[in-house]
């Protein structure tokens, strides 16, 4: 798998991260090394094996649909960088 600066920059954008020029070079080298190692899995012919997403056999495990108190609004807002008495204030979304 060829990992180049363009692919690294694309993945950084997907990750919501901006990398400085020097960081981009270093990250490209790091990804090349690690993904190169992950390519050892190519040697395995295992297409017929079903992927296992979870070790547990539970399916659609639900709890009783009971009413219970949720975290008070004031508590939820306490860690927000910008807020009013009732809402989290976000930066402008348009324009």
């Amino acid at each position: 798998m060829e990992i180049n600066r363009e692919l690294t920059a694309h993945i950084a954008a997907l990750s919501g991260i901006r990398l400085a020029e020097a960081e981009l070079d270093q990250m490209t080298r790091d990804l090349r090394s690690v993904i190169g190692y992950m390519d050892t899995l190519e040697a395995l012919d295992i297409a017929s094996v079903a992927p296992m997403s979870h070790v547990q056999e539970r399916v659609n495990y639900t709890r009783e649909d009971a009413v219970r108190p949720s975290i008070p609004r004031g508590d939820v807002l306490v860690n927000a960088a910008r807020k009013t008495d009732e809402y989290v204030v976000t930066p402008k979304t348009f324009g």
Partner: peptide, 11 residues
């Protein structure tokens, strides 16, 4: 952390 987020988003 950035490295692993990028590895994950790549995969």
């Amino acid at each position: 952390v950035k490295r692993r987020l990028m590895l994950g988003n790549f995969a």
